[in-house]
Design a protein around this nucleic acid. Structure first.
Lengths: 347, 347
DNA sequence: GGCCACTATGACAACGTTGTCCCCCAGCGG
DNA sequence: CCGCTGGGGGACAACGTTGTCATAGTGGCC
């Protein structure tokens, strides 16, 4: 194995101009159009000519400029844009992976970015993607205003909202059954004898957090254990605030004996806070996560599949790209309670 | 809050042609060049003119076409390409996040794709990114041949290899101290009295797997416990093969009392296989992972920071983009053993 | 031998933007 | 009143590619 040094810029030389079809054409002694034909596998090029062209391409290291191509062709840049909350969050990286998979099958590249729950950033990313003329847009909304997308949608860019609905446009949306999930969580805990069930959720202006709170409340009402303000703690949570909340819940006149966690991050914060304490409340977490089954006790969760979400949204998007122009759809994916132990502790 | 329906394609109408600078110019009663000036915040436009232009832009929902811009300007498409093994793997999604962060600070978008350890796919992705004229390329190599990148590097596209070195080109590379890590793992286990330490690693043609094996071997030699073929199991591992290997290790004439796991996936497979069994060998895993500290016993790991890796690589890439043309560098990031319990079990 | 059909190839414009260069006009000094 | 200056704005070409249309050559057929 010889080690090639690319003897070019790396060694501090001037940048070499990139070869264009023109250069290839000159070298191969044909017209630029013929090069184009070869590059695009168009018929009607004599095999021997094609061979000369290919040799020239190889020699020059030619690679066609997709900016130029996209400009000329007008339609389809072969990319789709994905705006999510945080690629670093395993849930969203699962979504990303699924989207990438579907996109690959359909010959598209994914461009993604994290909004970090900042509506301004979400908008910035989405519009940036539009400037790049993505063929479609998948968005996990951070904000409630999406009218900024109207011109893009009018111009034919399909948009699918993911995990949360758009604020003020009508568009395809894929959600999970947040309400059903927390109703089930509460029901499950109540069935195991718990009457004092707390809910720790994310900031209430986040759609899913709010929905899950609603489900929690409905569960409390349906099971007859009643809804008690003091058992609810919403808001952006970090390790510290979760620990503080747990302390508070323990010292109530009637302490909480069970907890529903509003998302995977909160579940983990809770687990970490509880680590080592002998007495631990029953726990059901929203979102499944790796290793939940290996903890002791294993963590009961409301599971919903990141891949399924990504796949459903991509499928919807590609259906639009294929010309489906039926009215906007709202898909709600089911969740399921996975009993593992942590929620089956008796009160 | 009113609900806007984008009354366009969604409702099944014809696609509206997207507004161009020409349309804006016509509407604003100026030349296209003036529109360009406004859009690019160039000086020399009368405030009142600029206002008219901005109004027209708003009215038409104009968004400049970056394909055209990039084509015309020739340099910098404002994107960087990231080829990794699997965005769905938490380790790589951490890398992605870090890269995205740095890119954002430098005004770049990240385009990423997963190679799934397939060299062909890696190449395909990298070249696709080159066709899109990314400003730079970050690659977690799947294969050993990277001479296909030479024309690109010559043309001035900086390339940084991540986590593994390139096969046959000289280029910037950021690695972690794989050898040092497994040496330390073995040393740690030996210090706790283990003499029969097994190693479960990934396929040996993967650079990191091979390095870690080397470290393991060196650790065995240095500690004087000796290297025994029968204690090593390389190869692509899944849940089943790991379980089988563990059974084999248990039934040796001198069974293994400790295990070093070659990466986070293997560690998890091991944990899952061991779940429930009373007697468990000591374990040190390569790669830290979320909740490792909450398992029982908590899992001792060789930790290295995905963000640090992503950041180091991006920093290197942007240094190149800023004109640094010193000889290619190889950065090796330190790892550290995080003792948590699973590796401190006495033999 | 003349005409046609067909294959292989090329000339040219156009995609939407920006860099270069030029022009117009108001204001000002001589 | 003239020439000069500088701010504001426009005409035009060019980026690299592809779609449209034209054309040269070749062989077959009456």
């Amino acid at each position: 194995m010889t080690t090639l040094s690319p003897s070019g810029p790396i060694a501090g030389q001037r940048k070499v101009r990139r070869a264009t079809m023109n250069d290839v054409a000159r070298l191969a002694g044909v017209s630029i159009k013929t090069v184009s034909r070869v590059v695009n596998d168009e018929p009607g090029v004599h095999p021997s000519t094609a061979e000369r062209v290919l040799a020239a391409i190889d020699q020059l290291g030619f690679r066609r400029n997709l900016s130029a191509r996209n400009l000329r062709r007008g339609s389809s840049t072969g990319t789709i844009g994905l705006v999510l909350e945080d690629v670093g969050n395993p849930f969203y990286s699962g979504v990303t992976r699924a989207v990438e998979e579907i996109a690959r099958l359909r010959g598209r590249q994914v461009i993604s970015g994290s909004s970090d729950e900042d509506p301004g950033r979400e908008r910035e990313l989405a519009l940036e993607f539009c400037s790049r003329r993505v063929d479609g847009l998948l968005i996990v909304p951070a904000g409630l205003q999406h009218s900024y997308l109207v011109p893009e949608m009018r111009a034919g860019t399909p948009v699918v909202f993911l995990d949360r609905p758009a604020g003020d446009v009508v568009a395809d949306t894929v959600l999970v059954d947040n309400i059903g999930g927390t109703v089930e969580a509460v029901t499950h805990l109540a069935a195991h004898g718990h009457r004092r069930i707390a809910f720790l959720g994310d900031a209430p202006d986040i759609f899913t957090a709010n929905e899950r709170l609603r489900g929690y409340r409905e569960g409390c009402v349906r099971t007859g254990i009643g809804y008690h303000e003091e058992l609810v703690a919403m808001g952006p949570h970090d390790e510290g605030s979760v620990a503080a909340t747990l302390r508070r819940l323990r010292t109530l006149r009637e302490p909480a004996t069970a907890i529903v966690a509003g998302n995977n991050r909160i579940t983990v914060h809770i687990l970490r806070s509880l680590a080592g304490s002998a007495e631990r409340p029953a726990l059901v977490g929203f979102d499944d996560f790796e290793l939940a089954d290996l903890l002791s006790p294993p963590v009961t969760v409301i599971a919903h599949d990141a891949s399924a979400l990504g796949k459903a949204a991509s499928d919807l998007l590609f259906a639009r790209l294929d010309g489906d122009n039926s009215p906007p759809r709202r898909v709600v994916l089911p969740v399921r309670l996975v009993p593992r132990g942590s929620g089956e502790v008796h009160a």
